[in-house]
Design a protein around this nucleic acid. Sequence first.
DNA 1: ATGGCGCCACATTGGCGA
Length: 257
Amino acid sequence: MKLAAWNVNSLKVRLPQLLDFLATRTPDVVCLQETKLIDDAFPIADLEAAGFRVVFAGQRTYNGVALLSRAEPLDVQVGIPGLEDEQKRVISATVDGVRVVCVYCPNGQSLDSDKYAYKLAWFDALSAWLKGELERHPKLAVLGDYNVAPEDRDVHDPEAWQGCVLVSEPEREQFRKLLALGLKDSFRLFEQPEKSFSWWDYRMMRFRRNHGLRIDHILLSEPLAAACTGASIDRDMRTLERPSDHAPVLAEVALDT
DNA sequence: ATGGCGCCACATTGGCGA
């Protein structure tokens, strides 16, 4: 099973690139973030014609998540149970026996922002919920835009970014709390090139200079991590005309049959 | 020192993302 996560920064704009991605990378499950579409505007027909089942939870202008799968998505759940949140950031489903959780974690804006406090509280709720999900679903994958660069090697210029949002110690602690539940960062299960990033600011030719951050992640429960055969970042999607500022991230797991 | 790009909407500027 090939899993992918991609913050598309507007599915309306990126639909042609997504269809190309689905056809050429042949993923089995794709988690999308920042679709920025109300549900009535979701391009169901285009994606079904490409061979995918689709479930989604959107809103106008901001946020919005979707889960695409070749196999039927079962037990679909929107949001984090018990968390009052109008922002559409989480959708989950079981696909081929794997519980898939698509997350668009809050950005936080800056350390003195209300949005930063919301981000940390949101991660508290995510951790508390995933602890139970891991007990209920041994084969659990949590993938999407975490808006956290876990370590300095995930940052093009750690000194410049030190203490900034996406990199600050409380955010990294929240990410480590997820790992402490028994989740593995699939990307780090393998040898990877130095300076591997998944997001580059549109400005200042950040992509051309590879001035980026690795903030999109595929976390796997231990049984899935043990079956993981590869993980990568699809930089090529960031080279296209009118790209998302995020590249897709991928991981492949060899499921028992 | 600031903003620099791209997307969205009660649009032609401001909010937000990261």
